[in-house]
Design a protein around this nucleic acid. Structure first.
Lengths: 100, 100
DNA sequence: TTATATATATCGGACACCCAATAGATCAGT
DNA sequence: ACTGATCTATTGGGTGTCCGATATATATAA
């Protein structure tokens, strides 16, 4: 059984969803995403977390990328926008009333 | 790698959080919780999902229970309310802007 | 050119989440 | 008492999520 302290769960999951959401606001490269996730979740995801997540979204056809030197800037493809729309609807229904 | 269809993720996780939230609205027993989760997530969690989750919250001291016949009605303990408050704050910060 | 910093990427494994199957316990109706 | 329905509960295992360690590539500075 998982250990619990003051908190009820470790808020795992939804990483791919959050990445899609963040990219819908602004095109970013991997490190920018990691920094933004750090602000929101309180802890910066490791490279072994962020890059496989990006890869999965890329392989699903949800991302467009623009390479410039060592950085790769990602944005949402049309399929990515559609996937985000569907996921947002489900997310909203699931957590209806949780937000203040 | 996980398979992806139209959607970006399978919305796993946060079951304990959702249970705490639902119990903060209304005391319920296990089956009521499962039905409410079915309405929100679109699929009713199996007994092997809901009861271990309840057990974990109970062992963490987050729940008070009132047995009456075969049903056990759960409500939040003071620690449970506190845990929910903390988790809600984190949840809100993490998913800020996702809600319409 | 060497050194350092930054960005990207992969691999192995730990752990959490959840389900299917199964079983015990209690109640209602016949 | 018997049957079926409902609620609770456990076990075993599959799968996804994530991290630590490590490696590669590119840019900047001395």
């Amino acid at each position: 059984m998982r250990k619990m302290g003051d908190d009820c769960c470790d808020m795992r999951g939804f990483l791919g969803f959050l990445i899609l959401f963040l990219l819908s606001k602004k095109a970013m490269h991997g490190q920018e995403l990691a920094d933004e996730l750090a602000k929101r979740k309180g802890e910066k995801p490791s490279p072994g977390t962020i890059y496989p997540a990006i890869k999965g979204l890329k392989e699903a056809g949800f991302l467009e990328e623009q390479k410039e030197g060592k950085t790769i800037t990602y944005s949402l493809s049309p399929q990515g926008k559609n996937a985000l729309r569907i996921a947002k609807r489900r997310f909203t229904r699931t957590f209806l009333g949780v937000f203040p």
